[in-house]
Design a binder for these strands. Structure first.
Lengths: 213, 213, 213, 213
DNA sequence: GATGAATGAGAGTTCATTCAT
DNA sequence: TATGAATGAACTCTCATTCAT
């Protein structure tokens, strides 16, 4: 009740921040990073250029926070999906599905590269941490799997997790370049799921087909 | 003998072009694409700013030609390596090894993105073609393998090839972001080789082979 | 009253545009067209270089609009002067007097030449139209005179009008070159008036009229 | 005989200078003054860029000498034409005809403006002198006419001469701007001849002569 | 003499950032 | 808080001039 008074402005602030971040994502999606100006972002967010600087210190700041925000959102969705099922493979599969969908949707977010920006050390750390969190998520699942099965893994969980995310990110990256020439996301995802299962989990590829026989 | 006179100037031109391209690669590596100025590239190449414009029409031109040049160089090395061995897996493995080394070395080249540049339609086509050539190379090998073994592939050669290159590029991309946090390239490569073999070729994964003994 | 609020910003924009145009005129007057930089114009207008680009798309744009603006201003003054008197010769004389004064004042405006600029077809059309409007004004007066007097003109009104403006512009042009060596504007104007009257209107030339008495 | 050895190289030098000057005239005619580069001129002259600098100290030098050369050539032709006939009007008419043809042909030469160049005081003097020589030529004829006829002129010979050349130059200038919209040179010339005769010489205007019959 | 590759000062233009309103 | 006009540093590109060959 009483705290609504306090929260309301905070929420308004949050909303406007998010509006600007979303605008940045849209503009970058449409025009590319180098061509996205602060003016573009402000217009797309429906505010004046000066207003952007009330919510973000610099242009770099917008982008860093965009990555943090969208990465967090993606990771939350991924965790949520994985927590809904049991079994290593089921968890990985559920996570990959939603992860893949999100990074295709948030492509600019994924491709943002500190080499494109003038970042402070602190900002670089934030960026790295946000991006690495996804890898760590998969690493945990894979490590847990090894522990449970007592099976000596052929390669480290971190390397495995990195390979997994590389396959996802690499696709987004190449799709961005190849456009129509790239294979359909759904086909790619099915392919990649099978690869990951065969390599990391073992067992039959498209195992269910064989099983039914 | 006599044609040395004719070739000399052409070679000099080629050499300077390559020097500028290499300088661009270095500068981008150090400062990032958005911060690499023509002046930087010129200085790094040991020439004056104006000289760069004797060899390239625009800054965009430098970058496009850099991609074409280095992509071509990489593909040639990859083909060379693959042609030296026989057997599908041996070919893939040889290709991946050298491919991986080259894209780590030429990282900026890989990450160049038309969204960062103002490219003409023609330049975009050139860029796409150069980058896609690597995918096609793997696609051919995988397709041939399917034909030879008469085995119905679980997923299309193109999707498989794209997955393969995604794993390589995705690693380079993430390594660029994660820096020290990323796993060692050699470890990643061994991991990824095993994954690819298990998924695309089938058969024993090296690590497990040892275990069963 | 209430619309002052609405007009104020528009007026401010108009004022600043005019300030920049006037600055351009001044700078070109002092340094010549080729040596007039955008920076010079901005400084002369008391604004920063970037500000100029808020009001004009390109440097060419400034110059084209300068010509249009000053040409329009001149033509308006010329029409005004001519409308205040009756009789062909009185109209021509009044027009020439004010026209001559204006083009001496706005000399750079007159000398602007599309060969000095990279103009689009649209800009060229605008420029031509602005400059030709003066010729057309005289053509109308002369044509009307011929109609009224029923006198078969010895040469076409357009050719006559062009000759008239040539004499004015040619003087400005030469004065610009010859500087002190050129005859005084007032003397020239009296001479030229007499010539025009003798040739186009006929009748006594002032000087001789007196003599014959 | 023996001096041919000495003259030959001098002639060669003269020839190449003239080739470069003519090339400059052509290039400016085609591209406009601001777009005419030394490289363009060199190519058009069939020599290398460096060679131009063996014959002219600076780009400005080329243009100044172009004006001097072509002005001199024109004046010589004008004098030659005038010397072939007798009578003031006949002289003026012959001079104007050839003068008009030459300045249309050498339009860039006429329109060259010190405001477009960075000229030294010495160069400016040379330019002025070259251009003013034509005015002086007409001034002399008109002054002589006044003396001969003993007639008190209604305006000074210099002002008259300046008006005459203004009419010619002004036409070239406007024709350059108006292109197709301008009247035909031949029509203009006839018009202008009549004007000049009526004003400066007196007597019947051709057109009216017929009418009175 | 002749060349043309190399130079670098200087131009036009953009855009992240500020600040008076 | 919100605005958007103003700023000027920084960038890309041009071209008159030089000089080793």
């Amino acid at each position: 009740m009483t705290n609504r008074k306090n929260n309301a402005p905070k929420d308004a602030v949050r909303d406007k921040r998010m509006a600007i971040i979303d605008a940045a994502l849209t503009v970058i999606h449409d025009k590319g990073i180098m061509n996205a100006t602060v003016d573009d972002i402000a217009h797309s967010a429906g505010v004046a250029k000066g207003t952007v600087y009330l919510y973000f210190k610099t242009k770099e700041d917008i982008l860093v926070e965009m990555v943090v925000e969208k990465s967090g959102e993606t990771l939350a969705a991924v965790r949520e999906a994985a927590s809904g099922v049991s079994g290593t493979w089921e968890k990985l599969r559920a996570a990959m599905r939603i992860h893949f969908a999100k990074i295709i949707e948030h492509m600019p977010n994924v491709l943002i590269d500190e080499g494109m920006l003038h970042l402070t050390a602190a900002q670089q750390k934030i960026l790295l941490s946000a991006k690495f969190s996804h890898v760590k998520f998969y690493e945990e699942i894979i490590a847990e799997h090894c522990t449970k099965t007592g099976r000596e893994p052929p390669f480290s969980p971190l390397a495995s997790a990195l390979a997994l995310t590389s396959g996802l990110i690499g696709y987004v990256f190449q799709r961005h370049h190849f456009k129509d020439a790239a294979v359909d996301p759904e086909e790619y995802l099915r392919t990649y799921e099978a690869i990951v299962r065969a390599a990391l989990i073992g067992g039959e590829i498209e195992g269910e087909k064989t099983k039914k026989k």
